[in-house]
Nucleic acid binder design. Structure first.
Length: 853
RNA sequence: GCCGCCGUAGCUCAGUGGUAGAGCGCAUCCUUGGUAAGGCUGAGGUCGGCAGUUCAAUCCUGCCCGGCGGCACCA
């Protein structure tokens, strides 16, 4: 047998696909469309195993759908703006643009080596002026619609690097790169009104039935919609303000009110502090205490009684004290609350400390009104309202509605929906991003750059290599003239958050050559993305921003769809064992030799033999040095074996552990497959195929088809492994004509079934058995449902629930007939000796149970 | 604390209200002219624990234990 040689066959087939333009996406009115997309990569310069797995999955879907007759769009691009390029510029004195495009060239070559069925003609990078110029165009459209605005906001400022940092870039209060203590600064920042869409973004999640439940829940939590009542308390006596506005989700418990509280940085608290040193001291303490999240979580409830009183909205004679409390957040709701300790744990903890009253107003089912009391645990369950005058006897929902109606009638407030979501701050003080296309004019203020002057491109001679914003520093770039008055003006030097770049790229892929940002005609055909694939780490950020931008552009008439991704799949990571020397140094897998002694394994350094500690299995990362370079694997085992392994060893949504043994197993499979095809013998004309092998083939087609449809790639591959064993036990050599005929059908199907996973091998196999054209153009094999069922069923026979024998019966045999067969069976009869048969339960085609005593 | 996912062979995982499976690993043997390879055979499981429903539970229900992830003073 000739050994399979991937180094020779793999490039050959990639060339053949390229010259046939096999993956060109075409709008074909005669076919249903299918848009499959994997989250595009950041061009770091090197492909890692996580990319291999992510893109292999998308490729399986793309090839499968193509074979099933869909017109498929499967594009690729680069999320190419961002900090790493500027950091490389600073560390190595290179040009970010050159660095980025060099990386893209390297990674494109590696991705192409993977044999992905991508329409490369649509490729673009977000740092192409042809892309970000279009982004500037729709940015201005949203600006015109009022969805983009400038606001003062507090940001993380790195005083050494002279830039704003995202929250993720602040580690323990210090800039992740400079190590400098991050300052809070108030800056004029560009923001997008994502909060205008908070309701839609929540409601529309329900219709995303092909998204993981987990991601939908995470987005729902992040947006954090709550419905309640916003209303004003009126002060009793002198006070520094007219009234105090609070927000509550429990207006039904208003008669259980114990006190009113405000956040330490609430204007009222500050007003009180102006004349009350003790209050000022308390506020100061609160600010200091809230240094880290962990401290906030565990912080004890503390408060300060301002001495002010407010009137209960339903009883002017009932006065409630006003406290400043450390557990109230200024940036949620109105920064002020009314407290009902009987039915809110935080309020209860607070009043237990300060001796304020606790009055229950919700009676749990089955409790006695006279006896029910709240101890150290607030009651938040269902029940009937009592102790509440006109609300008595109502359930919680009815009481909420009634309380809101009364407050509204009094003119003291209104029903309100409050969100946790904040507007999206998109300004970055970085040069390597999409310039914000506006100018600042001393007479006309903020003026958008006219569309016919777009794109606002980076200057060619941009000087990186120093901290801070190189656009700001550039000697001439920012000086321009005002489009309105033609007087001198300056350009905005902030650039857009790179999440803006990735919030619409999927729409640009529909027609990346279009003059307008999005070609309606092409987008209407291709969108939404039918299957989107990527990591769970984008569950909130990218996936939320993309949904928002899609809705905003749809309202502007630039898109028809209101959701970008009809189906979402979040794949697991690639992990590997970690290795450490005695001195704690991490060691790469390729420098390790593993010795198995029975069931235990020892690791040592290659060469020196120094023992190495085998550590936990963790996500492949540079810092733990537990990475395996894809190109080295491709070199030894070929691309197909690598693709096969990352898909075969775990369910797609779970992590997969990379092991040498595993990839060798995949490599052996590739060779065994080739062996079967290489030994192929055509069947003599007119031979009837062996029925058993034939049934197995049709069962396999069904199983693999269903596995791919359900994203159970590992399961489908397991069936292919099993089937290969079956082929091995029905070899072509010296085979009867019936077996050869059945093998012919089996191999023809098998070559097409493995094509999504190991496309190069599939082509080689297909050619070996004389398949027509290439597998990429061949239709997916069909199965005959009748052939996927066995003609004769083996039914286990149980006596009182324990297996006592088995019988064979034709498929679909009636229970009465099966009963006769069972009772006639001598082995079973012997087991029934001395017993009286009470009942026989026959489950068609499955099992028989005899109840006897 | 709340929500979600997971627990099946040494490892990674299929699977089903009715006979417990695959790949890898391990062991035995064969091959030594596919040879830094190939093949045969085999061992290995109280299906996390306890209870319930059922003729029958790894599967359904409840409780508990363990692991992972997300959210968390959000009024």
């Amino acid at each position: 047998m000739a050994r399979y040689n991937p180094k020779e066959t793999e490039p050959k087939w990639r060339d053949a696909w390229a010259s046939a333009e096999a993956f060109k996406a075409v709008r074909d009115p005669g076919k249903p469309k299918y848009y499959v997309l994997e989250m595009f990569p950041y061009p770091s310069g090197r492909l890692h195993m996580g990319h291999v797995r992510n893109y292999a999955m998308g490729d399986v879907i793309a090839r499968f759908k193509r074979a099933r007759g869909f017109s498929v769009l499967h594009p690729m691009g680069w999320d190419a703006f961002g900090l790493p390029a500027e950091n490389a510029a600073m560390e190595r004195g290179v040009d970010p643009k050159g660095w980025t495009y060099d990386n893209i060239d390297r990674m494109r070559a590696e991705l192409k080596e993977l044999g992905l069925s991508i329409d490369w003609s649509r490729e673009f990078a977000t740092c192409d002026v042809g892309y970000y110029g279009k982004q500037q165009a729709w940015f201005l459209d949203l600006f015109e619609r009022g969805l983009v605005y400038r606001k003062e906001s507090v940001v993380n400022w790195d005083p050494v690097d002279q830039t704003v940092l995202a929250n993720e870039q602040v580690v323990d209060g210090r800039g992740w790169r400079s190590g400098a203590v991050v300052e809070k600064r108030k800056l004029n920042q560009w923001a997008m009104r994502i909060t205008d869409y908070a309701d839609q973004l929540t409601d529309d999640l329900k219709a995303l039935d092909r998204w993981p439940e987990k991601v939908r829940v995470m987005q729902e939590n992040w947006i954090g919609r709550s419905k309640g009542l916003r209303f004003r308390f009126h002060f009793a006596g002198d006070a520094p303000a007219e009234s105090l506005e609070v927000y509550t989700t429990r207006p039904d418990t208003l008669f259980g009110a114990s006190f009113v509280g405000v956040a330490a940085d609430h204007p009222l608290a500050e007003a009180v502090a102006a004349n009350d040193p003790k209050a000022a001291a308390f506020i100061e303490e609160c600010r200091k205490g809230a240094a880290t999240e962990a401290e906030i979580e565990t912080a004890e409830k503390r408060g300060y009684d301002t001495g002010l009183k407010v009137k209960h909205p339903f009883d002017p004679n009932w006065e409630l004290p006003v406290w400043i409390a450390n557990f109230i957040l200024m940036d949620y709701g109105t920064g002020a609350i009314f407290a009902c300790p009987a039915h809110d744990q935080r309020d209860l903890d607070f009043v237990r400390k300060y001796g304020l009253p606790v009055k229950p107003v919700v009676l749990p089912p089955g409790e006695d009104a006279a006896a029910f009391a709240v101890g150290d645990e607030a009651y938040t369950g269902p029940g009937v309202i009592y102790n509440s005058r006109f609300l008595d006897g109502l359930d919680i929902e009815a009481a909420k509605a009634e309380a809101i109606a009364r407050i509204e009638a009094q003119g003291d407030g209104e029903g309100a929906t409050v969100f946790r979501l904040r507007d999206w701050g998109v300004s970055r003080q970085r040069a390597w991003g999409c310039p914000i296309p506006v100018v600042h004019c001393p007479t006309d203020g903020v003026v958008p750059v006219p569309k016919d002057q777009l794109p606002v491109a980076h200057p060619a001679d941009i000087e990186f290599g120093k901290a801070g914003n190189a656009l700001e520093r550039h000697p001439t770039w920012k000086h321009t003239t005002c489009p309105v008055c033609s007087g001198p003006a300056t350009r905005e030097t902030d650039t857009l958050d790179t999440f803006v770049d990735s919030s619409w790229y999927f729409a640009r892929f529909a027609n990346p050559w279009a003059d307008e940002p999005i070609s309606r005609e092409d987008a209407d055909y291709w969108l939404p993305v039918d299957q989107y694939i990527g990591g769970i780490e984008h569950a909130v950020l990218h996936l939320l921003y993309a949904r928002f931008v899609t809705k905003a552009l749809a309202d502007d008439g630039q898109l028809a769809v209101r959701e970008p991704f009809a189906g979402l799949f979040t794949q697991g990571m690639v992990t590997h064992e970690t290795y450490r020397r005695q001195n704690g140094e991490w060691v790469e897998p390729k420098d390790i030799e593993i010795v198995a002694e029975g069931k235990t394994r020892r690791a040592m350094l290659v060469g020196s033999g120094e023992p190495v500690v085998i550590g936990d299995v963790e996500k492949m990362s540079k810092s733990k040095r537990n990475t395996v370079a894809p190109e080295e694997i491709f070199d030894v085992y070929g691309v197909d074996a690598a693709r096969l392994f990352v898909l075969s060893d775990s369910p797609a949504e779970r992590d997969v552990q990379w092991t040498t043994g595993g990839v060798q197993g995949a490599w052996r499979f590739v060779n065994r497959v080739w062996d079967e095809f290489d030994s192929h013998v055509p069947a003599p004309a007119g031979a009837e195929p062996d029925p058993e092998l034939r049934r197995a083939t049709h069962k396999l087609i069904r199983q693999v088809t269903e596995s791919i449809d359900g994203f159970r790639f590992n399961s489908g591959i397991a069936r292919l492994y099993e089937f290969l064993n079956l082929l091995k036990s029905n070899p072509a050599r010296d085979a009867a004509p019936a077996v050869l005929a059945a093998r012919q059908e089996a191999l023809s199907a098998f070559a097409r079934l493995i094509a999504p996973f190991t496309p190069h091998l599939a082509e080689e196999c297909w050619a070996r058995i004389g398949g027509e054209g290439m597998v990429v153009a061949a239709p997916w094999p069909d199965f005959d449902p009748a052939l996927t069922e066995d003609a004769v069923k083996v039914l286990p026979v149980q006596v009182n629930g324990k297996r006592r024998g088995e019988i064979s019966a034709p498929a679909g045999a009636e229970p009465a007939d099966v009963e006769k067969l069972v009772l006639a069976d001598p082995e079973i009869a012997s087991k029934l000796e001395g017993l009286t048969v009470r009942k026989i339960i026959v489950v068609k085609d499955r099992i028989v149970n005899i109840v006897a005593a």
